[in-house]
């Protein structure tokens, strides 16, 4: 699946640390982060976003145990394993949160188009 990602990408949201694209040909979302590309089906993208936002940043900051410094996420049906530090998590939350807002805006626009067509 990873090999298919290369063309027809629409940029959804971008920061200096990464971006989210949509591929209308494969109906996938593609996350570009730390030089790696990961493709998600919409359902798995939502699931991944929820998991990133569920990371307890307060615990990462206050817990002195070494294991608390890293969050490990292995999204479903991808070949990527995310090892996230606190700053990684914040950056990823910004990217995914921004993408989510744009996607909702797209839904609103599409709904309005249908209503006034």
């Amino acid at each position: 699946m990873q090999a298919k990602i290369n063309t027809h990408l629409i940029e959804i949201f971008k920061t200096e640390f990464g971006s989210i694209y949509q591929c209308d040909q494969t109906n996938h979302f593609i996350l570009e982060y730390a030089g790696r590309f990961t493709a998600f089906k919409p359902t798995n993208f939502i699931d991944f976003t929820k998991r990133v936002f569920a990371i307890n940043l307060h615990d990462m900051a206050s817990n002195t145990a070494r294991h608390a410094d890293i969050a490990i996420l292995m999204p479903l049906y991808t070949e990527t394993c995310f090892l996230l530090t606190m700053s990684d998590t914040i950056r990823l939350q910004r990217i995914l949160g921004g993408a989510k807002t744009i996607l909702h805006l797209n839904t609103l626009l599409k709904t309005s188009q249908l209503q006034f067509a």
Binding site: P42, T107, K110
Partner: peptide, 9 residues
């Protein structure tokens, strides 16, 4: 641009 979220559910 397709609305992939709405296509899903």
């Amino acid at each position: 641009m397709k609305d992939l979220l709405r296509l899903r559910t």
